[in-house]
């Protein structure tokens, strides 16, 4: 941890692994730590279905921010196979521009046993990165329907990426994420149907109650609209009503993490398997954790 605070990349990488493996307690900032300006935000969540071009766009955002003098850290989340426990982490593939840059730290993360799209440990990893002086952090999440919304728990701002020609209407609408996005980018504007996709999203948003976010067309392939996207990201304001939803997700994420990390988890599953309701089993867990707090 000390090595990480002293600016060692290897120290940072090691400390992040400790967090990932649940071998790290709470993190205190270093004594010389200067918290970032209250008006600046740090964490951008980038989400959307697989293949829409999130990684390609992230590569552009990184370039934009390092030109501004930021130190940019990226946490790219990909799913773990529930069967084998293995994972293929391929987001780096699209980041050839950033490999080797001193002011870019890129880390691939597998979801491991965490069901949602953003593992709970990511919040702690972000905390450490910010303490270590990374001024902008990007979290790219797996595009997986319902679980998607969990990104709101850890991001200050959310960029939702869509793309044309996916044939099944607007995915994010189903996930409820469209309500939370602070900016929506329809990528692959070089392909047919991008405008139509944008129109569909606009229509979907009109039905919703909150004020709609900006919708932009862009192409990571041709560079069209990328500059506008970067400018919009820097000027992005949090959507009305979304901060409560973010807080709610934050609380839910901590709660879920506590359950997944509980040494009682296996017991609970056994109790449920033997026919007791899940509700009863969880009550037993709550009692236990109350006793533990009293002991402390």
């Amino acid at each position: 941890m000390k090595a990480a605070f002293d600016g060692s990349r290897r120290g940072l990488a090691r400390a992040l692994s400790h967090i990932e493996n649940n071998q790290m307690g709470s993190i205190e900032p270093p004594s010389n730590y200067i918290p970032p300006d209250k008006n600046e935000w740090q964490v951008l969540g980038v989400t959307g279905a697989p293949g829409v071009g999130k990684s390609c766009l992230v590569d552009k955002i990184i370039q934009h921010w390092i030109e501004q003098g930021h130190k940019v850290a990226i946490l790219a989340v990909d799913p773990t196979s529930p069967v084998t426990g293995g994972a293929l982490l391929g987001d780096r593939l699209r980041m050839s521009n950033s490999d080797g840059e001193e002011s870019v730290y890129f880390r691939s993360i597998a979801t491991r046993k965490h069901g949602g799209s953003v593992p709970g440990v990511v919040a702690k990893m972000l905390e450490l990165l910010i303490f270590c002086g990374w001024t902008k952090c990007i979290v790219e999440t797996v595009g997986a329907g319902q679980g998607e919304i969990r990104v709101a728990a850890i991001a200050d701002r959310i960029l939702l990426v869509e793309a044309p020609g996916r044939g099944d209407g607007v995915q994010a609408e189903k996930a409820g994420l469209i309500e939370l996005a602070d900016l929506i980018v329809v990528n692959k504007s070089d392909l047919d149907g991008a405008q139509r996709t944008a129109d569909e999203i606009r229509q979907a948003l009109q039905v919703g109650a909150t004020s709609p976010p900006q919708i932009l067309l862009a192409s990571a392939a041709t560079g069209e609209g990328i500059e506008e996207m970067c400018v919009s990201i820097d000027q992005m304001v949090e959507r009305e009503g979304s901060s409560r939803a973010k807080l709610l997700e934050r609380v839910k994420a901590v709660h879920e993490q506590a359950l997944l990390d509980s040494p009682q988890l296996e017991n609970i599953l056994e109790i449920v398997a033997s026919g007791t309701s899940a509700e009863m089993a969880l009550q037993a867990l709550d009692k236990q954790s109350q006793q533990n707090t009293q002991k402390e």
Binding site: S81, G85, L88, L89, G90, L93, S108
Partner: peptide, 10 residues
Amino acid sequence: RDAGHEVIYT
């Protein structure tokens, strides 16, 4: 990956 490891492809 199928053997249960986390593989980062460059």
